[in-house]
Amino acid sequence: MTALQKVMVLTGASRGIGHATVKRFNAAGWRVITVSRHAFSSECPWHAGESDHVQLDLTDSASLENAVEQIRRRLPGGRLDALINNAGVSPKGADGERLGALQTDYTGWIDTFNVNLFSTALLARYLFDELVAARGTIINITSIVGSRVHPFAGAAYATSKAALTALTRELAFELGPHGVRVNAISPGEIETSILSPGTEEIVDHDIPMKRLGRPEEVAATIFFLCSEGASYINGAEIHVNGGQHV
């Protein structure tokens, strides 16, 4: 590692968009510190992966401060170039069905908001000094379901993602004067394990491009927002959904 190597912290790194993002940044020479509720897998192909992995279940807010200390010990010179809040949970019923507000208990609401929203706000707070030192950036992964009712994503997931869009605006306003940009990426139907049976009907009826998105396409957008080319983009939410939002 050189003194100029950029460093990123990524939550929800073990699969899908998170996994593709780690590979994209690692290939570009970034050091990637991953955060996941799963232990590091030896199958992951990136350098120093296990030593730069912090195992944390974001539903447990009491463990977050200890995890942040583990992250800080891995930050050279107290600098953090990018914080990518990608972790997300979408509770389902016993048979994988959508849960509306009437079917979601208090624990389901709290666990979903802890992962999808509260951890994002707290990580920004705890890692503020390190982000300022690097004039870094925060990217929050929201969702198309934050702005429309979805046949598979339930009420807790949808409202947490809508709140995350609002939090992105608030953080952009609050951190912008300190040189830290905050943006969001709102994916649509991306080919990951979170998809439910029946998604092909959404592709046929609602997506002009008539295909699922690939995790690598979202990762490329994340990479752009961390580049100099995006240096004046702040408080934005970029839709990556093949035109589904139109």
Score class of each variant (00 low, 15 high):
residue 245 H to N: 10
residue 115 V to A: 01
residue 162 A to W: 06
residue 197 P to V: 13
residue 161 K to C: 07
residue 70 Q to Y: 05
residue 116 N to K: 04
residue 215 P to E: 06
residue 48 A to N: 13
residue 67 A to P: 07
residue 10 L to I: 07
residue 203 V to C: 04
residue 140 N to V: 10
residue 21 T to N: 03
residue 131 L to G: 02
residue 8 M to I: 14
residue 7 V to W: 01
residue 77 G to Q: 09
residue 214 R to S: 08
residue 74 R to L: 13
residue 7 V to N: 01
residue 51 S to G: 06
residue 97 E to P: 03
residue 96 G to W: 08
residue 189 E to V: 11
residue 40 F to D: 03
residue 163 A to R: 01
residue 215 P to Q: 07
residue 154 G to E: 02
residue 53 H to S: 10
residue 13 A to C: 13
residue 165 T to Y: 10
residue 136 G to K: 00
residue 149 V to F: 14
residue 235 G to P: 05
residue 47 H to P: 06
residue 231 S to M: 10
residue 94 A to E: 10
residue 84 I to R: 00
residue 136 G to Q: 02
residue 107 T to N: 15
residue 204 D to K: 13
residue 134 A to P: 01
residue 82 A to G: 12
residue 204 D to L: 07
residue 105 D to C: 10
residue 212 L to T: 03
residue 244 Q to W: 15
residue 94 A to M: 13
residue 200 E to C: 05
residue 35 V to Q: 00
residue 79 R to G: 01
residue 223 F to D: 13
residue 132 V to M: 06
residue 162 A to C: 15
residue 234 N to A: 11
residue 220 A to V: 13
residue 48 A to P: 04
residue 157 Y to F: 09
residue 171 L to S: 04
residue 29 G to Q: 12
residue 34 T to K: 03
residue 38 H to L: 09
residue 15 R to C: 06
residue 104 T to S: 06
residue 52 D to K: 04
residue 165 T to K: 13
residue 68 V to Q: 06
residue 67 A to I: 03
residue 218 V to P: 00
residue 127 L to W: 01
residue 191 E to G: 08
residue 215 P to Y: 04
residue 92 K to I: 12
residue 48 A to V: 07
residue 198 G to N: 13
residue 5 Q to G: 10
residue 63 S to P: 05
residue 121 A to C: 06
residue 210 K to W: 10
residue 227 S to E: 14
residue 121 A to L: 11
residue 233 I to Q: 08
residue 30 W to V: 00
residue 131 L to A: 08
residue 98 R to C: 09
residue 165 T to G: 12
residue 189 E to A: 12
residue 134 A to Y: 03
residue 132 V to P: 00
residue 56 L to N: 00
residue 186 S to Y: 03
residue 216 E to M: 08
residue 236 A to Q: 15
residue 146 G to C: 11
residue 112 T to I: 08
residue 135 R to K: 12
residue 231 S to I: 11
residue 36 S to M: 01
residue 172 A to H: 08
residue 107 T to M: 13
residue 34 T to H: 04
residue 43 E to L: 11
residue 154 G to K: 02
residue 199 T to Y: 15
residue 145 V to Y: 09
residue 119 S to I: 01
residue 195 L to E: 04
residue 71 I to K: 00
residue 11 T to M: 05
residue 170 E to C: 07
residue 4 L to S: 15
residue 14 S to A: 11
residue 87 A to V: 02
residue 82 A to E: 00
residue 199 T to N: 14
residue 168 T to A: 05
residue 164 L to C: 03
